[in-house]
Design a protein around this nucleic acid. Structure first.
Lengths: 233, 233
DNA sequence: CGGTGACTTGAGCTTTGTCAATCGAAGTGG
DNA sequence: CCACTTCGATTGACAAAGCTCAAGTCACCG
């Protein structure tokens, strides 16, 4: 029942009554399946619908004129990574799958209708977009203040926390189907350097990143390096 | 009539009728005057009101556990830098004045009342918070993909554009009351390095940054270095 | 079996940071 | 008005983090 992932996430932050939830459920299209590395929405597109990631991973990215690409955020089941399109018609970045993914869509027309009828739902969705902002702000701090090792550790800690609340972590281990090259694009580092950081983490028994699976070996150390702050809101 | 700055900015992005605008005006408290470097809201505070910057400059910042501070964004007249507090009760960052500033406040109670009565106003405010996000995303690209000189150039180009739409640029010159140390905190660079970049810009006749005033001398070059993209939404 | 994509490794180099000192303007108390 | 302090800007010398280039390895796939 993949659609429940979205509901689950929404309920983490907002109090919604059953009627709100079923109104929302009712406008989500049947799930579509996307392969790995498929573009869901492209920068410049005029969006007429927003999506919900039901399973799998996705990421948002933007290329700077220099041709360098920056990954802005990673997304997991339950996320609505292009909800902002509801009010900002023109996409300012790309949204791409990182793994095969199940995606549901909600047309903006239907969303507006449902929000007008149920203001509390509108507020809950607004809040979701604000939480998105919080993550971006943390990301800025990450890029601006931390060394390479700190950035990697932070990213892992953040994902660990988010996947944890969605029940996607088992035995301090989770799937994260990303290449080192994408990690580099996310963290503003070179591939070579990412590789070296990961190796040193492995050697020091901090964490292991192999075959798309992350294994946390020394959480204390990771949190210390990455200075991750759960930041309960 | 400083409150008109807010209205002016809102109307840039949303169509609002006079009644919406006057409803909003009516809940803004009389302006308060803040000196330079005064904290308006602090990380961890539970916010019960949001502010509107009527004149002057402010910035948002966050300290990473390492004690290093990161400036997240700069704000100018018309901005509502802590609007997200309406739905995210706990502040995740500080808001501080960069210069003496006039600030109006809107209590969250009143805001919620007015939004409930006028959904279009709610959407306009939601959109404002989304524009905030856009800026953060650009900032991530800035930190992640550009060299020191590019980052500085980008920041200047962004400010130039934003101040321009608010009518605060004259003769390709604008006031930006920031120290080099704060620039360093915003751009994730050391003070010394910022100083060198500014000097080289001055020497090359790209731009001049003296006594809190920025003078653009070669806009082409600035846009090229910073790769600024107006990104009309 | 050859090809492709991801990961690894080494060497040398560039950008940026650190440390330490100096300078200059503005403000303060005497 | 002068000595003194303070804060921000500036400079030089040196160190470090991270980048680029280039080559090689390894697993997988047609």
């Amino acid at each position: 029942m993949p659609i429940e992932m979205m509901i689950r996430k929404l309920r983490l932050h907002s109090e919604l009554v059953q009627d709100d939830l079923s109104a929302l459920r009712s406008i989500v299209t049947p799930v579509k399946y996307f392969p790995q590395d498929a573009v869901i929405v492209r920068e410049g597109d005029i969006s007429t619908q927003s999506c919900v990631l039901m399973s799998g991973f996705a990421y948002r990215s933007k290329v700077s004129e220099h041709g360098k690409r920056q990954i802005l955020s990673f997304h997991i089941a339950g996320d609505m990574p292009d909800l902002q399109g509801l009010l900002l018609k023109k996409m300012d970045h790309d949204l791409t799958t990182l793994s095969p993914a199940q995606v549901g869509f909600m047309s903006h027309l239907a969303l507006r209708r449902v929000i007008a009828a149920r203001p509390s739902l509108g507020l809950a969705l607004w809040r979701e977009t604000l939480l998105d902002s919080v993550t971006f702000r943390q990301w800025i701090v990450n890029l601006g203040t931390r060394t390479a090792a700190g950035r990697v550790a932070y990213l892992i800690a953040e994902l660990h926390q988010r996947l944890g609340t969605m029940g996607l972590v088992k035995d301090e281990q989770f799937s994260f189907p990303v290449t080192q090259s994408k990690l580099a694009e996310a963290l503003g580092l070179s591939i070579v350097h990412i590789n070296r950081v990961l190796q040193s983490f492995r050697a020091q028994g901090v964490l292991d990143f192999r075959k798309q699976v992350v294994t946390l070996r020394d959480i204390e150390k990771i949190v210390e390096l990455g200075g991750f702050d759960d930041g309960s809101l």
